[in-house]
């Protein structure tokens, strides 16, 4: 069971900040959108399956529609030709949204230092957490998800309206 946020407790009532409650809810029900293109995607399948079980973190419900997803998990080599598709998927996601870049290829291009491969997805969309590895083990992917959970739990209610966030998106030419 999730740990309840700080608050004032008494017989029959519990008072806390709305921001904390929403953070708690978001943290424990992150719906991932798996964007799996290669071997990191296979590791993700292991992460989803019973042995590692991403469901323990409230993320067993994969959303194959970007509109209901909270967390974009990019796993694998992204060719330059795939770039616009990935960007469109990101743009279709509703706020708040987080991006997890799994593996060397998604994070930096990895071994594919070549004309046809995007040298890291952060060239086209903002990334919240990078998971290193080629491919990373399921434990590492889980740790990446837990880092996103920490971000979701502590995120300020108004962050997505802040000028800093708008500036970040504008630097990627989004909106």
């Amino acid at each position: 069971m999730a740990k309840s946020p700080e608050g004032i407790e008494g017989p029959g009532f519990f008072a806390t900040k709305l921001e904390d409650v929403i953070g708690l809810a978001r943290k424990n029900s992150l719906w991932p959108l798996p964007f799996a293109t290669s071997c990191c995607g296979i590791e993700f399948m292991a992460t989803m399956a019973s042995h590692y079980d991403l469901g323990r973190f409230g993320s067993e419900r994969l959303s194959f529609s970007p509109r209901q997803a909270d967390m974009l998990m990019v796993m694998g080599t992204i060719a330059k030709k795939m770039g616009p598709t990935l960007r469109q998927v990101y743009e279709q996601m509703a706020e708040p949204r987080w991006v997890l870049s799994v593996g060397a290829c998604a994070s930096s291009g990895g071994i594919f230092d070549t004309y046809s491969v995007l040298q890291g997805i952060d060239k086209i969309i903002p990334v919240d957490v990078y998971v290193p590895g080629c491919p990373p083990r399921p434990e590492q992917i889980l740790e990446g998800v837990m880092k996103i959970q920490q971000l979701a739990e502590k995120e300020s209610f108004r962050r997505r309206e802040s000028p800093e966030y708008k500036k970040l998106l504008n630097s990627y030419g989004i909106e």
Binding site: S108, G109, D113, T114, Y115, V117, Q119, G120, K123
Partner: peptide, 9 residues
């Protein structure tokens, strides 16, 4: 060149 010229790392 074969390599991507935007590689930074």
């Amino acid at each position: 060149p074969l390599e991507d010229q935007e590689r930074t790392d």
